[in-house]
Design a protein around this nucleic acid. Sequence first.
DNA 1: TACGATTGTGCAACCGGTTGCGCAACTATG
DNA 2: CATAGTTGCGCAACCGGTTGCACAATCGTA
Lengths: 344, 344
Amino acid sequence: MSVTIKDVAKAAGVAASTVSRVIADNPRISQKTKEKVLQVMKEMDFYPNAIARSLANRSTKTIGVIMPHSSEQVFVNPFFTEVMRGIGMSAMKRGYNVLFSTGSDIEEEYRSTSKLVNEQRVDGLILLTSRIKDKTIDELIKKKFPFVVVGKHPKLENINWVDNNNQEAGYTATEHLIKQGHKSIGFIGGEFTYVFMGERFKGYKKALDSFSIEFSKEFLALEEFLEEGGYRAMKKLLSNKKRPTAVVVADDLMAFGVMRAIKEEGLRIPQDISVVGFNDTPLASYVDPPLTSVEIFVFDLGYNASEVLINQLEQEDDQKKHIIVPTRLKIRKSSITVRRQKKL
Amino acid sequence: MSVTIKDVAKAAGVAASTVSRVIADNPRISQKTKEKVLQVMKEMDFYPNAIARSLANRSTKTIGVIMPHSSEQVFVNPFFTEVMRGIGMSAMKRGYNVLFSTGSDIEEEYRSTSKLVNEQRVDGLILLTSRIKDKTIDELIKKKFPFVVVGKHPKLENINWVDNNNQEAGYTATEHLIKQGHKSIGFIGGEFTYVFMGERFKGYKKALDSFSIEFSKEFLALEEFLEEGGYRAMKKLLSNKKRPTAVVVADDLMAFGVMRAIKEEGLRIPQDISVVGFNDTPLASYVDPPLTSVEIFVFDLGYNASEVLINQLEQEDDQKKHIIVPTRLKIRKSSITVRRQKKL
DNA sequence: TACGATTGTGCAACCGGTTGCGCAACTATG
DNA sequence: CATAGTTGCGCAACCGGTTGCACAATCGTA
């Protein structure tokens, strides 16, 4: 079939082991021999077979990425695309390959992950899911298989994870509204089973605390994690005797629903009610008015996850790493009070 | 390290070759032996090493996916995510792994692809790019390496490709507007170096022809492939002496810009000008008014690409396959004239 | 009972690399 | 000139599986 190390060896008049050492740039090979062999390799268009190398080296130079089975929220923001770009860039730079795996349900996801691990097709794993209870994670811990989770995980200290600073993000968004003069600020989000959801809420509360604003349960509305959910949640807040003058909405898609509800009520954004979203979905800047949102650096999340994993694979350092990627508030019209708006 | 076939053989009191044949469910092994070996395998928690199998079988059971280096338009619609899901599902079902590769520029993309091929890390490739001139494609053809392109390609017959029916899509969108009573229909798009762009335009013209409407150059505006480009293009059409009463916009993101331009002019959508977009971006249904758009079945694109490739890998059938995935017009308010709007 | 056909298993080579160790040739030293 | 030390390369085993072929055991039949 294609040219092997033996073919090269024969053509160069040396042993296969010599060719191998040339590839590895082993210092025990003389310069002259090296040059000759390299020459022949070039002429014969030789490339070492990665599979054979993997077998001999007991290392695949491949990391596996497990994509969540249902793409859930992924639909609206290009989370997955960006995280893969980040992982890909890091892996490529470090000479690693990226094997992608998924499953149509949670059970299949578990099985396909186990398969990668058991059949030793990958050296390590990146998990793009952060469920509270996770069979896969338990299994990996038990097997002492190297992996890193994107998104914080309850089992905090025992595992590697990379996450954006959701609490800070919640704080910053809320603080921004407070500094715009708001005192009645609502919080709209999805269920708290999502780890990041709770974090964002914590940040929100912390900000209220910092400015001695009391948190009121009336200003909290949790609904389904979709445009429609945001719409319903806002309708609920609007039906209160006391309406908030601003809302922190823990996801852009929900925020779009929130905006729809506000407009439907004949109210203006931001004059009557200001809105801040999260994730800085590409469309945040295109809605009317453009939505203030907390930007998440998803590429960095992926890049860092890969770096942490590969570092761990290449050193025997077994210390678990935790990386927090900062966020950034992108201020747009949906949250700017009249006075400052003139500047724009 | 981990359990090998030899360990199992020893424990079961048979030869390694027998264990191998049990794994392969070879009929020459007696039922009794099979059961015993399977039992031992279970007890020892044995999984065959995928790398070793690959080496022996000269097949990696892996397909490579090359992601375009810049994610360009990908930002708005979850194209990449969906296509990967499709590929993943098919591959998984067929017992294949998916190796993901990319590069930060076109040259690196080429090199990393060559590497996968030359080092024999994958059995076949799926290319997510469809450039008119493509070094990678030329190389693969020369090497007779199995691959399929997502998106039509000029070298039509010589290669496998999977694409959605862009021409039909353009036709349907235009036809829809004509049936709403429009006779002055504009076309807004990006450059025609994108293959699909030209196809959509062809469909548009064909529809005009079918209904004996003359095409006017004045109604054509090509701009940058972004919201801003759509905005500029529409401004241009609006500055014409004769304005169109409807526009076909070859991409949703551009369509959002188009809508912005129309509103800015104080015109109403759809009453004054109707708009139709393409790709059915998730946000199409959330803008005001909701945007009529041609839905692209990206998951199917990926799924089919993988199926075509794997079929080709497993049969010696060398006939090149071409699959066209249909599209679907999703009619929303942005293109419905008053009379019919009542029905909603 | 003897012999060919059938069935079940093992031996050993092979896939394409890597690497410990040994040995030959060369250089330096007394 | 003999011996010890260094340098450069090859032999052969190994990574963990697969598979062609040989051979022993069992069965059917004359």
